[in-house]
Amino acid sequence: MNETNEIKEFGDIKSVLDYLEQIKDDLHNKTLSEQIKFKDEVKNRHDKRQVQMLLGRLEDQFKIRRALSYLVTALFAIVSFAIGSLTNFFVSNLPDTELKSYTAPVIIFLFYILALAGWIYLAYAESNRLRKISRYKRLIQECFDEMPEKKYFRRRV
C-alpha cells in the first residue's frame, strides 16, 4: 500500500492485483458477504470499461504465471546437475578412508533435502499467487457481468 494508506486512482495503477488487494486484502479467505462488499466497492469506483480493463489485466497475469511454471523445472534440473558435479568434485578430493564411502550419499541426501525444501516453498508461493489471481479474476468477472450497459449519456452544459 501507499505510505498514506490511500487507494490509488485508476490511472495510477501499475499492478492490478496490488490495486485490488488495496481495496480488500486476503479476499480468498473472506466470506461471501465480504466478497459481495468488495464487488460493490469495485462497481462504485469504476465504470464497465475500467472493470473490463482490470479483468483483462488479471487474465494476462494468470496466463503469464502459468506459462512461467516451466522455469521451476529448469531451475531444479540445473540444481541437480550442480549437486552431481559438486558431489563428484568433493568425493574425488577426499583422501582414501572409510569416510569417503559415506560422504557422497550424505552430501547427495543433504542437497536433495535442500532442493526439496526449495521446491515446496516455490510451489506453495506460486499456488497461493495463482489462487489469489483467480479469485480476484472471478470477482471482477462477476462485477463486469452485473454492471448494466450505459444507454444514456449526460450532456455537459
Rank of each mutant, 00 (worst) to 15 (best):
N29E: 07
I83S: 10
Q35V: 03
Y112H: 06
K150Q: 09
N128V: 09
W119L: 11
N29L: 14
Y102G: 11
Y121T: 08
L58I: 03
A74R: 08
F38Y: 05
D26A: 00
F81D: 01
Y124M: 10
Q22C: 13
G118I: 06
S101E: 14
E34C: 02
V42T: 04
E98G: 12
K37H: 12
Y121H: 03
A104Q: 11
S101C: 08
I36C: 09
P95D: 14
E41D: 14
L94Q: 11
L114N: 05
E98N: 13
Y70E: 09
K37M: 12
Q52R: 09
H28Q: 04
C143V: 05
L75D: 09
L71Y: 10
S134I: 04
S33T: 14
V72G: 10
D40L: 10
V79S: 05
K39M: 12
S69C: 11
K63M: 15
V91R: 00
Q52W: 03
P95N: 13
S101N: 13
K37R: 14
Q35L: 04
I64F: 11
I83N: 03
K63T: 13
D60M: 15
V51R: 02
L75M: 11
I36Y: 12
R135A: 10
Y124I: 08
N93F: 08
F109M: 07
A125G: 03
L54H: 09
F38C: 01
I78F: 01
L110E: 03
T103E: 10
F144V: 02
F62G: 11
F90D: 01
A125L: 05
Y136A: 03
I23F: 01
S69R: 14
L27P: 02
M53P: 02
A115E: 06
I36V: 15
V106C: 01
A67N: 15
K24E: 10
M53Q: 15
I140K: 01
C143D: 01
V79W: 01
L58N: 03
L99H: 08
A67P: 04
K137G: 09
R57V: 12
L122G: 04
I108R: 04
D26I: 00
P105W: 06
K24D: 03
D96K: 13
R155P: 00
D96H: 13
E126I: 05
R131K: 15
